[in-house]
Design a protein around this nucleic acid. Sequence first.
DNA 1: TCTGGGGTCCTAGGACCC
DNA 2: TCTGGGGTCCTAGGACCC
Length: 429
Amino acid sequence: MGNRNLYDKKEPKNTLMYGLIDCNNFYVSCERVFNPALNDRPVLVLSNNDGYIIACSNEAKRLGVKRRPVYQFKKEIELYNMAVFSSNYTLYGDMSTRVMSVLSTMVPDIEVYSIDEAFISFAGFDDPLSLGREIVRRVSKSTGIPVSLGIAPTKTLSKIANRFAKKYPAYNNVCIIDDEEKRIKALKLTPVGDVWGIGRGVSKRLLSRGIETAYDFTNLPQDWVRKNMTVVGERTWSELRGIPCIEMECTPPSKKQICISRSFGKMITDPINLSEAIATHAAACARKLRDQKAYAVSMMIFIHTNNFRSDQPQYYKNAIINFPVPTSDSTEIVKAAVEALRRIYLEGYLYKKAGVIITELTKNVQLNIFDTVDREKRARLMEAIDHINDKYRAQLKIATQGNGRDWKLKQEQLSPAYTTNLNDIIQIK
DNA sequence: TCTGGGGTCCTAGGACCC
DNA sequence: TCTGGGGTCCTAGGACCC
């Protein structure tokens, strides 16, 4: 028995525990908070352009609905009278903030991992399970969003515990892996492809070698894992064996890139429309930059045709822009993006998607002595515009952005912006 | 007819330098 | 004529996450 065993009897019983809080069917739950009539109905939430199912309620899952293009379930949707919504990210973002702020009143160390998930550390608490139950109760009660919690000595194991908390009602939304027996049992019951960090590609390769469960995976030699799955796979391997390798990141690292891209509601050919879309995305990137107090160093724009239509001629092209002085000024960024588009646009293609990526950004601007722009004045102007747009939920924008009539998303089933738009607030009589 | 969007991290391979 | 080898930086591509 040369293996390291975290649960050796000599070790103190309360090793540091991590928790993973995950909102149940988050987008669906958000829709339900403000519309309780949905509670027992199967509910679906669609992607941008309403083409794809990105969230479904348990009822819908039980009826066989999966994350697939909507048209594949047309029949079921009608037959079972499912409620269908376009995604409403303003609402989901706001509900996410509420969940996270309740959490942070209860534990000091919290890492917001995604819109509907957070890791917490139980460092300093001797009874994670009781605290965990209280967290789940309080978050659900004060936000209306049901959540589940997995607790374990590593983040990867806490993810697995969370799956059990969700899957088996007997756990009452909280599941803890706190001894060797539970760990082994959980790993044996977890298909290898369901492990956090093991994606479709690798899991296929593992299956072909007869590795079916997370437990089988932990029994592979470390060298093999390292060689075939890089250090990333090796970390997962260790974490599953109970050795923490992935630390909490309580302060979110600043973004390394910013990307805005959208498919169009319908194919477009007109350079004016493309140009409006690119300008709009560029302006949105500029806004995100300002929110993070960052400046673009380089930027890429791209346009492409519909790669699902192999019968049509395809064109995928990008262009790179380097800013001599890093900037977050909308006018400057939009102008550069539109000029770059002019360089790569070709007539005669049916375009389906366009995007803008800030590929490199920085937090400080080094002034260039040849710079002719009054940067302070421009910064004040941007600040004023952002302020007006926030306060009045207005849409002050640059003329090139246009009105989007011909390229905007399809969002035919949008729910009201209950939490943020005064006009959509529910009337109480 | 109809197929999301926004990220991160790692590696391999080429260019270049000494 | 001999045709080295190590380091760094960059990019493209692939894999993963929600």
